[in-house]
């Protein structure tokens, strides 16, 4: 009797093999992805809530003082802490048991970007301490740190050939640059909307990349 390749005796036909290949690949991609689509979606919500909250707390100020209300800062701290914890957990989970050049490169990227975020926002402290004018204080924190972080991140990601992350970082820089035109109060809102859009974009892209079929073109 003729034998059909991949079928018969073990009941494992090509259709099932294709399904198994796709599902095993998707499962592995999900588990090896440090920054999940859900995390990026959460970040999109955080950007909108935090920067939107800042905007709400400063938009009615006449004259503009740049003072952000305590509740907005408290919400930002809590959501940012959750984001940091979730990110650290995701990176740790994805990298468990993985070794090699790509893994070392990812660790280097993580270290560089952590430093960029800290330095980017740390320089606002000397400005505040120096007593810069309120319009400057209003514009600077909303756009300048993100502009620097975005550009640095895009350069490093491009050097590492992380093209989706390079696009994301560039999107952050563009949103921050656009925010500069929004005025002291409006810059917060523009930054929030811009970051939200960028995060939703990378979340969609990551989800698509995880789900794309190995077999189906």
């Amino acid at each position: 009797m003729d034998h059909i390749p991949g079928t018969a005796r073990d009941g494992f036909d090509p259709g099932q093999a294709a399904a198994l290949l796709d599902q095993a690949t998707r499962r592995a991609r999900r588990q090896f992805t440090p920054l999940s689509p859900l995390l990026f979606t959460y970040r999109a919500v955080v950007a909108l809530v935090v920067f939107g909250g800042f905007w709400l707390s400063v938009r009615g100020q006449h004259p503009y003082t740049g003072h952000i209300s305590g509740w907005a800062i408290a919400v930002a701290v809590v959501l940012a802490a959750i984001n940091i914890g979730w990110t650290a957990w995701g990176i740790g989970r994805a990298g468990t048991g993985v070794s090699g050049p790509a893994q070392r490169k990812w660790q280097a990227w993580t270290g560089i970007m952590t430093a960029a975020w800290i330095i980017g926002y740390a320089v606002t402290a000397p400005l505040y301490h120096a007593g810069v004018s309120h319009p400057v204080w209003g514009l600077y924190p909303a756009s300048a740190p993100l502009l620097m972080i975005g550009l640095a991140g895009a350069a490093v990601a491009a050097a590492f050939r992380y093209w989706p992350l390079a696009g994301t970082a560039l999107g952050i820089a563009v949103a921050a640059a656009a925010a500069g035109f929004g005025g002291p109060a409006g810059s917060w809102l523009i930054t929030g909307i811009g970051l939200c859009a960028v995060c939703l974009g990378i979340a969609t892209f990551t989800a698509w990349r995880q789900r794309r079929s190995m077999v189906r073109p």
Partner: peptide, 29 residues
């Protein structure tokens, strides 16, 4: 073309070229 080995190969192929996975993690996955 054996389910278990197909899953092993598909899992390892999801890693970047040159990266390795610990036996324990692979077993867990």
């Amino acid at each position: 073309h054996v389910p278990t080995r197909l899953k092993i190969v598909a899992t390892l192929a999801a890693l970047p070229d040159g990266d390795a996975l610990s036996f324990t993690r692979l077993q867990d996955m």
